[in-house]
Design a protein around this nucleic acid. Structure first.
Length: 462
DNA sequence: TGAAATGTTGGGGCG
DNA sequence: ACGCCCCAACATTTC
């Protein structure tokens, strides 16, 4: 409810307001839906309902095709106008056009700070490279705290509007690492900016370390609109202005840029919706992926034999969240070491990530695969052993998620297959039995992927 | 928000 | 004192 542009406009233009959430089977029953993400949504809706009741209102739930559901609601209630925050994913845009064909729908603000049509080059072209986009973005958007919209004091909602029950999350949902709801979201942001640790001012050092909470972990909240992106940007800009220290400034700047990456990928998906189907770069559309099923399943389950990969995958499976550094490492491994189509990885992430969002997820995968806009060049192949030593230097992250390696001395933790037999016995971890051998050799895989990408480019040129 | 290969430099050991 | 080699350490180039 805080800094909610649609809600604020609704309240200022109508005497009574019906807060509604439509459970759309297209999204809920999609093969890309994740149980944890749905649990996060349902618990978040329950929390929102509780928050609304404190304001004298309540949340109305309707199920079904959005156009029909809303049309029924308008009939039931006599509502004159519908307001919503804009969502720029291809599905959402088509949906909202459909709704607006029959109903008086007004889109206000949106799930991100910048409307995708607003950050354009002078000639009206869209930016396809991050840095110039980011510069243009910063010159357009600067927030003062007073520009942010307050939480309404009171919301008047008519009685007797029929509502379905908020679904009760099933299965593993009680183990959610990140608690849904607007209060936890604001607390998390506040803690990151002004808490004891001053996370935002350490960010340049801590954001890549996998065994500590060096990131804000607000992506699930941004994903579901439980936290205002404008509030985050404003907080980053305030932090930036209020520190004289260069190192802190740089950290805050990097964090702000991460928020702008999100806006960038939303804009890319808006202007190039076909990235969901194929590589953005034409010259890399014909890579002969190996798509080996048993290797794919080893990656999915976290048993590739590379501890850093397996630890990160198990973190995802267990919590529905993965450290950003982990996402880059496992994505690079899937695409480049195993030569598996990035779209397989993209889909798997969508099926497991609580923060799973088409724009950011697709952007990240195409970045890693080297097939996207402003992508990592294809020959940048992450070395899982070096990444492990750099970003989990003490092995705490690996030990947390791979208990079978917990007794392995630090010296061998990043590459346990090098452990002599005697030490394997001592540490209670027989490589090949208790923990797998690497499914592919790093040097071999590196040379193979360079060869395959090079050939794909060459074939394209002819 | 790479890694590996290759090139350069400079200190120290040594005959 | 000198030239030579070795090899970190760092820099540059290449993939």
């Amino acid at each position: 409810m805080s800094d909610n542009q649609a809600l604020t406009e609704t309240i200022s233009s109508a005497k009574s307001v019906i807060p509604v959430f439509v459970l759309d089977p297209k999204l809920i029953d999609s093969p890309n839906a994740s149980h944890k993400r749905l649990a996060f949504l349902y618990k978040g809706l329950a929390q929102l309902d509780a928050d609304l009741q404190e304001k004298g209102s309540k949340l109305i739930i309707r199920q079904g095709n959005p156009k029909e559901a809303l049309s029924n609601l308008v009939k039931d209630s006599g509502a004159k106008q519908l307001y919503a925050e804009a969502d720029f994913s291809p599905y959402a845009r088509t949906r909202d056009v459909e709704v607006a064909r029959d109903l008086p729908l007004k889109l206000v603000g949106g799930s991100c700070v910048s409307h995708p049509e607003s950050v354009l080059k002078k000639d009206g072209e869209t930016y396809k490279v991050f840095t110039p986009f980011m510069r243009a973005w910063k010159s357009l958007y600067q927030f003062q705290t007073e520009q942010l919209l307050p939480v309404p004091e009171h919301i008047h909602t008519p009685k007797g509007i029929a509502s379905e029950e908020i679904p009760v999350p099933t299965g593993l949902s009680s183990s959610l690492l990140i608690q849904p709801g607007e209060k936890p979201a604001n607390n998390r942001l506040h803690d990151f900016i002004s808490g004891e640790l001053r996370g935002i001012y350490q960010y340049s050092d801590t954001r890549n370390l996998m065994d500590i909470r060096g990131t804000a972990q607000i992506s699930p909240y941004l994903r579901f609109g439980m936290l205002s992106a404008r509030l985050c940007v404003s907080a980053a800009q305030q932090a930036l202005q209020h520190t004289p220290d260069d190192h802190s400034k740089r950290s805050a700047e990097i964090w702000l840029n991460e928020l702008i990456w999100r806006e960038f990928f939303i804009s890319i998906l808006y202007h190039y919706p076909s990235v969901l189907q194929q590589s953005f770069r034409e010259e890399l559309r014909a890579i002969p992926w190996r798509n080996d099923l048993s290797e794919f399943s080893a990656w999915c389950d976290g048993r590739t034999g590379y501890p850093i990969i397996d630890a990160a995958m198990r973190q995802l499976l267990n919590t529905g969240w993965m450290h950003n550094r982990g996402r880059m490492i496992v994505a690079s491994f899937l695409v480049k070491h195993l030569l598996i189509d990035w779209r397989w990885g993209e889909k798997f992430f969508m099926q497991h990530l609580i923060d799973g969002d088409p724009a950011a997820n697709n952007g990240g995968w195409q970045w890693t695969a080297g097939t996207g806009t402003d992508a990592a060049t294809y020959f940048r192949v992450f070395n899982p052993i070096l990444q492990s030593k750099k970003f989990d230097p003490h092995g705490n992250f690996i030990r947390k998620w791979i208990p079978e390696l917990s007794g392995v001395p630090g010296k061998y933790l990043h590459e346990p297959w090098k452990m002599p037999k005697g030490i394997q016995r001592q540490s209670g971890c027989n490589i090949g039995r208790d923990y797998p051998l690497p499914i592919v050799d790093h040097r071999f895989a590196r040379e193979r992927v360079l060869e395959v990408y090079n050939r794909a480019k060459k074939v394209y040129q002819q």
